[in-house]
C-alpha cells in the first residue's frame, strides 16, 4: 500500500502538473473577480498571442537547461535579431528571407555562446552575462540607438495573422513545442540530450560528445530566438536596441523554473516551461484587467516561483523515500 502511495505521489507531485493546477486556479480567481473582462475570448487571444513570443524562446532555454547550462543573454539576442529583421524589412528584403536571416543570426549568436561554454569551458552564467552586455552594446552601436519602425504592410503576417481567431504564432509555438519535445522523448538524439544532462562524466561514458551537444543546444536556442525576434518586430511594430527584450531573460528563466525544468540539467520538458510562460502572462494580464495595480505582477510571480521551487523539492524528498 505504501509503495503504491509513493508511486502516486511521485507521479503526480511532478512539477508540471502542479503548475498546471496553479494556472487553472489563477485563471479561475481572475475570472470571478467582479468587473473584470478576464474571461473573454478576445482577452484569451491576447494572452496567447503575447505568450507565444516568450514561449518560442523558452523552448530554446529548456534545451540549454536540460544540458545543464543557463542563458542570460536571451533578451540581448532577441534585440539583435528583432532589430536586424526590422532593418532588413525596411530595406525591402522579402519577409521569408528576413525570417531566414534572423534565424541564422540568432543561431550564430547562440553558437557563439555555446562555443564559450562548451569549448572554452566558461561557466554558463558568466559567459551569457558577458555576452548579454556585449551583444546589447554592439546592437546599440550598430543601430545608432534609432528606433526601427514603420514596417511595410507585407510584414504584418508573422506577428499579426490569425486562423479563425487564434494567433498564428501561437499555433507555431505549439507546433514547435510538440516537435521538440517529441524529438526529445522518442528519438535517439533527444534521449541523448536527457542522458547527457548536466553530467559530463556520464555523457562520456555513454559515448556522447558533451561539448557538441551543449553547443547545439545553444545554437538551436539562438535560432528559436531569431524566429521569435522577427515575430516580435512584426507584432509590436517598433524595435530598438535599448527597449527590446529588457526583461526577457528573467521572465524566461522564471517560467522554466516554475515549469519544472531542473537547473542542473537532465530533467524537465518543454510543456512545463510553456505552462510557466502562460502562467506569468496570465498573472500580468489578470492584474491589469482586474484593475489591481500591476506592480504586484513581479511580486506575485516571484512568490509563485519560490512556491514552485519549494514544491519541487518536496518532489525530490518523495523520490528519496521511494528509494529512487
Amino acid at each position: 500500500m505504501n509503495a503504491q502511495i509513493h508511486q502516486l505521489k511521485a507521479r503526480f507531485l511532478r512539477q508540471e502538473y502542479i503548475v498546471t493546477l496553479f494556472t487553472i486556479m489563477v485563471v479561475f480567481v481572475f475570472s470571478v473577480l467582479p468587473g473584470s473582462n478576464f474571461y473573454s475570448l478576445p482577452n484569451f487571444r491576447i494572452i496567447l498571442s503575447q505568450a507565444a513570443i516568450n514561449g518560442i524562446c523558452v523552448i530554446g532555454l529548456t534545451l540549454c537547461l536540460i544540458m545543464g547550462g543557463i542563458d542570460f543573454s536571451m533578451g540581448a539576442v532577441l534585440a539583435v535579431c528583432a532589430c536586424f529583421s526590422g532593418i532588413l524589412v525596411n530595406r525591402g528584403v522579402p519577409v521569408f528571407a528576413v525570417l531566414a536571416a534572423s534565424v541564422l543570426t540568432g543561431m550564430l549568436c547562440g553558437a557563439a555562446n555555446g562555443f564559450l561554454i562548451a569549448y572554452l569551458r566558461i561557466a554558463p552564467i558568466i559567459a551569457t552575462l558577458a555576452s548579454m552586455y556585449v551583444l546589447r552594446g554592439l546592437c546599440a552601436i550598430a543601430t545608432g540607438g534609432v528606433w526601427i519602425s514603420d514596417f511595410p504592410e507585407t510584414f504584418k503576417w508573422p506577428g499579426q495573422s490569425t486562423y479563425g481567431g487564434i494567433p498564428m504564432h501561437f499555433v507555431l509555438w505549439l507546433v514547435l513545442a510538440f516537435a521538440v519535445q517529441f524529438t526529445l522523448n522518442n528519438f535517439n538524439i533527444g534521449r541523448k540530450f536527457y542522458a547527457a544532462g548536466g553530467n559530463p562524466e556520464s555523457a562520456r561514458l555513454f559515448g556522447i560528445d558533451y561539448a557538441a551537444y551543449r553547443l547545439s543546444a545553444y545554437a538551436a536556442s539562438g535560432a528559436l530566438i531569431g524566429l521569435s525576434g522577427t515575430i516580435y518586430a512584426s507584432m509590436v511594430g517598433t524595435v530598438s536596441a535599448d527597449t527590446t527584450g529588457l526583461n526577457t531573460s528573467g521572465d524566461l528563466l522564471a517560467a522554466a523554473l516554475i515549469g519544472g525544468v531542473h537547473i542542473n540539467g537532465g530533467k524537465g520538458n518543454v510543456f512545463g516551461a510553456g505552462i510557466g510562460v502562460l502562467l506569468m502572462r496570465i498573472i500580468r494580464n489578470g492584474l491589469i484587467i482586474s484593475k489591481i495595480s500591476e506592480h504586484w505582477a513581479d511580486a506575485v510571480t516571484g512568490a509563485i516561483i519560490v512556491l514552485a521551487l519549494v514544491l519541487s523539492s518536496l518532489e525530490k524528498f518523495s523520490q528519496r523515500e521511494q528509494g529512487g
Binding site: G250, A254, L257, H295, W296, A297, D298, A299, V300, T301, G302, A303, I305, V306, A308, L309
Partner: peptide
C-alpha cells in the same frame, strides 16, 4: 526566484 520576488 528571490531575484524576481524581491524586485517585485
Amino acid at each position: 526566484g528571490l531575484l524576481i520576488l524581491l524586485r517585485g
